[in-house]
């Protein structure tokens, strides 16, 4: 007589194919995960750099505009890597070696990964009615610039 059930072979464990397929799937998922984490970290760093740059730009521009905004007539002298504001006796200097901007003897260090452009980091346009100073920078290999503008009161 055959009795079913009591003498059945018990098969525990996994076949080799199951193990290999599982490992391959897990490795593929891990590769995508690591790639995604790298992208997220890069994007976060980019945002932090932008934020630091914005703070730097605001601090410097606020200081300069505080000095020049209420001056009726203001002329500048472009001395190459520096600008002299004639009527207020202050100088804006781009120090490429130390990677900083010096205005009124106060040093404003450029944030991390921000550098002066190789060509023409300091330009100016000056007429009898206005002047515009361009400062050209590189932020993480992207070109950035900001202007300092003054219009003479007519």
């Amino acid at each position: 007589m055959i009795v079913k059930g009591n003498n059945m072979n018990k098969n525990k464990g996994f076949t080799l194919v199951e193990v290999v397929v599982s490992f391959v799937l897990i490795i593929i998922v891990m590769i995508y995960l690591i790639r995604t984490i790298t992208v997220v970290i890069d994007k976060n760093n980019e945002l932090l750099i932008m934020e630091e740059y914005s703070v730097f730009e605001k601090t410097l521009l606020d200081k300069i505009y505080d000095d020049i905004e209420n001056v009726d007539v203001l002329n500048i002298t472009n001395q190459g890597s520096s600008i002299y504001f004639n009527e207020i006796g202050k100088t804006l200097l781009l120090d490429k070696e130390s990677n900083c901007i010096i205005y009124d003897n106060i040093v404003y260090e450029l944030p991390d990964l921000v550098y002066f452009s190789d060509d023409d980091s300091l330009n100016s346009v000056s007429t009898s009615d206005y002047f515009i100073i361009n400062i050209n920078l590189k932020l993480d290999n992207k070109n950035k610039k900001f202007n300092i503008i003054h219009q003479n009161n007519k």
Partner: peptide
């Protein structure tokens, strides 16, 4: 789910980039 969310975040970051064009300090 983390991978899908992180890739969808790309869409939101692009929107932030649009906002970074508005009222820059300069």
């Amino acid at each position: 789910i983390t991978i899908v969310y992180a890739n969808c975040m790309d869409y939101f970051v692009r929107q932030n980039n649009e906002l970074s064009r508005f009222n820059t300090i300069d």
